[in-house]
Each structure stands twice: as structure tokens, then as C-alpha cells.
Amino acid sequence: MAEMLEVSGITKRFGGLVAVNNISFSVREKEILSVIGPNGAGKSTLFKLISSFLKPTTGEVRLKGERISGMAPHIAARKGVVRTFQETTIFKNMSVRDNVVIAHHLRSKAGLLGFFLGTGAAKADEVAFGASADEILALLGLSSLANETARNLPHGHLRALGIAIGLATDPSILLLDEPFAGMNHDETMRMVAMVRRLRDLGLTILLVEHDMPAVMKISDRIVVLNFGQKIAEGTPSEIQANEKVIEAYLGSEDEAIGL
């Protein structure tokens, strides 16, 4: 299978602290790859490095062979690496539909001046974005909430909206930061089903997650971090059997790894 994203020898230092230490792995096209690890392992930092919100100290990230690390985040997004946020980040005071429409910005053919003047291209964009937004909302079960102000949405729907925003940008790879955080069992299972559906539609997904049972269920492959280093990589069953992983999660191992 072709490689979508390639992380090679990436390191990030914050002063004396090495938050991410010489990590390499790759994400294949149309797979769900999860990065797990105890608190402080460096997952969020790795995430920010991949989405270009942080510049690596050394090493690089390539998307379909093209180097993207060290670019501005909006450029990385344009190249196709899009992240949704851990803190369920959305445009709070816009309607749900507007959130998704505006997220199509990357695809717009008209420029700012075109929008100001209301040119044909701008109007065509407007129609196309609206139609695509409605499709995405339907896919994520948000159609009935389209006109609701985003800040009024319940937790689970907010998370779905965050993903809808990511999808609207038509990414090559979607990065999800803890998509299951704060969800109860049912919500988690629904989200797992949804993420798989996205993958079946042809999306490549990289997610960072705490919730072990969900990770075991959803992932094609898993990368495990501890203290900034990669300690294991493999399929869910390989990871469950890995000595080092069990050690890293020592204390609550059985339950935490979902055995």
C-alpha cells in the first residue's frame, strides 16, 4: 500500500526537555493509525509537529513525498494535512452550517476581491460549498442541527462538528486529537463507527487517543510513545502482547490496554 505520510527522525526540544525524540513511522493510504502513550509521552507535541503548528528541532514530515514540516499551518492545511482539535474547537458564535461552509475556504476558486465584488466564481463557490456542507452534515448526523448556534451543541455533537469542519477542507489525511475524550461508552462507540465510515469513504486517518478499548477497536495499526520515544509499533493484537507497552502502562495495565 502507498504511504501517505512519512515521519522521519523527528525531534522536538523545549529547552532542555526532549518532548519528542527521534521518532519515525509512516501512515499508509486509507488506514487508521493511532498514536497512544501515557500522559506527557509527547503525543500532542507530535501532533502539532505533523500539522506544522510547531517546527521540529530536527527531522521532517513528508506528505506524499513532499516535505511539509516547518511550513505555516495554513500551508500544511492547503497541502492536505488537517487537524481537528482536542479542545473541541469550533467557531462558537456561528451556526453549525456556517462552521462547515467556511471550512471549505481552502477549496475556493475566487479570491478575496472576487468575494467582495460577488463575481461569478464567488457565487459558484458559494453554491458548491453550501451543497457540500449539507452533505457532510448529513454524513455526521448533524442535519437537524444545521441552523443551531454552534456553542449550544451538546458535547458529542460538538466533536462531530469538529470532524465535519476537518472534512470540509477535503484533506488527504485527517488528524484527530483525542476524538473520544470525555465521551461515555455509547458516544464512543458511535464515534468509532463514524471514523471507520470516513475511512471506508477513502480517508486516511491519524489519531491520538487515550481511550485504549476504543483504540484497539478502531485502529489498523498503533504507534506507542513513552517519554518522547517510540517504544512499539504494530497491529492492535501485536501491541496488546508487547512487553514494553505493558510495562509503560504498568499499574493499570490489564484494564488500560483493554485485555
Partner: peptide, 8 residues
């Protein structure tokens, strides 16, 4: 931050 990550 979100605006930036959707390409604005």
C-alpha cells in the same frame, strides 16, 4: 488557531 488549520 482553527481558522489557520482550515487554511485561512
Amino acid at each position: 488557531e482553527l481558522a489557520s488549520s482550515i487554511g485561512v
